[in-house]
Amino acid sequence: MRLDAESDTYTESQIIMTTVRIVAPFALTYGLFLTFHGADTPGGSFQGGAIIGSTILMIAFAFGIEPTRDWLANRTVVALAAGGTAVFTIVGLIPMLYGDNFLAHPFFEEQWGIDTKWGLEAIEIGGVAPIVAGVVMGMFFVIAAGFVVEEVDVDD
């Protein structure tokens, strides 16, 4: 048993950290690539969002969960998940404002000459991907924080 506080401290492995430093930008780029190309190639925003989330999980495992959460700020995670849902809803509601149906994509073409395709792209890129990425990260951080019964101040 190594007892003195110094050697007993757990230090992260440099090898793992450096590899994650290298791989993370590629993984994030690939996640974004899949998100943007859901319309034309296999894969899509769900998969892309999952990979974006995994990138953060990768960083969290290599550098520690608490520092990663501090870096990412809770606001980002919440904004991703909630913002994605909002974008999806708004894109769906716009045609309704003009008396068409919910999520009626052809409306955009008739009204403003925007290709139907961009309606689909909007809900995929702006909606599904952020929701999935945000929820993956969020669940990870919430589970990592563990189960806590009502906070009780036991110090006094």
Partner: peptide, 21 residues
């Protein structure tokens, strides 16, 4: 999409965390 979002919110509620506040 809403179900996925709700799942995240539900986890938050079940674990009773103030992580995100």
């Amino acid at each position: 999409a809403v179900v996925v979002f709700s799942a995240g919110v539900a986890t938050l509620i079940v674990l009773n965390k103030e992580v995100f506040t």
